[in-house]
Amino acid sequence: MRKIFLEEAGSLYQRRALRYLLIFLEPMTAFAIATLINAFILYLLRYDPLEVYSVMFLTGYSDIHYLFIKSSPYIATGLAFSTPFLAGIFNIGGEGQLYVGALTALLASYVSRNFLISILTGSIAGALLSGLIAFLRVYRNVNEVVTAIMLNWIMYYITSYIITVYIYDPFAPYQSRPVPREAVINPDLMFIISVFTALIIYIVLFYTSIGYMMRVVGRSFRSAVYSGINIKRIMILSMMIGGGSAGLGGALIPLGTSPHVLDNTMSALYGVGFMGIGIGLLGRNNPIGIIIASIFISGLIIGGQNVERIIGAPPEVVDVIIGITIVMLAIPYILRNILAKRGVYI
C-alpha cells in the first residue's frame, strides 16, 4: 500500500540527482506560476507587468545594508515559526513574542547601555512568553493557536501602552526615547547575529540528540512516545527556542534600525511576526532556507515600495503580488507535507 515514489527510480545516484534537481526545479516552477498569475492581475489593473517586476527586482536588491536591516528580523521570526513546527507545534505567536522582545530590549538598553544585555533580555522575554503558550498546550491542553493569537493582541496593546505612557520622548510623544548611543548596533552586526542564530538552530536541529528528538516528535507522535522521549519537555523546549528567536528579532529592530525608537503604533514591528510564517514555509522549515527566503522576500518588499513612486501603482497592489508569490512558493512544500501524511514521499 505505502510506496515511496522516488525509491523506484533507478540507482542511488540517479535518485540523489533527481532529488537535488527537484530542490531547484520546484521553487522555479512555483515562481513561474506566481509570475504568470501576477502578470495577469497587473494586466487587469492596467499596469505593465514587466515594468513592475523590473522595478521590484532592480531596486530591491541594490542596497545591501537596507537588505540586511529588512531581512534580519524576518530570519528571526521565520525560525520562530519553523523550530516549533518541526516539533509539531504551530507557533502563530511570533508577532507577540516579537513585541515583547522589542519592548524589553528597549527597556534593558536604557538601563544597561549595552547591546548584548539588551538582546539577551529580549530573547529571554520572547522565550518565556512562548514557554507560557507551550505550557498551557502541554499541561492544560489549551490550543496553542488560540492562546498565541490572544497573546499577540495583549502584547500589542501592552507595548503600545508602555510606549505612550511611560517611555515616550518628551520632544516627540508619539515615539519612545531612542536607544542610548552605546547600545546601538549597525546593520552588518544585526545581520550577522541573526544568521549566526540560524546556524546554531540548524546545528541543534540536525546534529544534536535534542534536535533529533524534536523532529521525531513532529514526525510521529507515537514513535516518540514508544521510544521514551519526554514529549512534554521537548515540545516546550522547541517552542521556547522559537520564542527566543522571535524575541531576538524584536530586539534587533530598535537596536539596529535607525532612528532606534519604537513609535506608538509600532509600524516597524507590525506584521513581521506573521510574515515569519510565510518565510518559514518558503524556507522549507530549514534555517539555511529561511535565510535565503528572508533575503528574497526583503528584496521584494524593498523594491515594492518604489513601485508607487516610479509606476504609480498603489502600495496595496504590491502587497497582493508579494502575497501571491509567497503562497505559490509555499504550496509545493505544503502539498508534499500533506502527501507525506498519506504515505507518499516525493
Partner: peptide, 10 residues
C-alpha cells in the same frame, strides 16, 4: 511622484 514608507524603520 508619491511614495508610502512601510514603517518608521523604512
Amino acid at each position: 511622484v508619491y511614495q508610502t514608507p512601510r514603517s518608521l524603520d523604512d
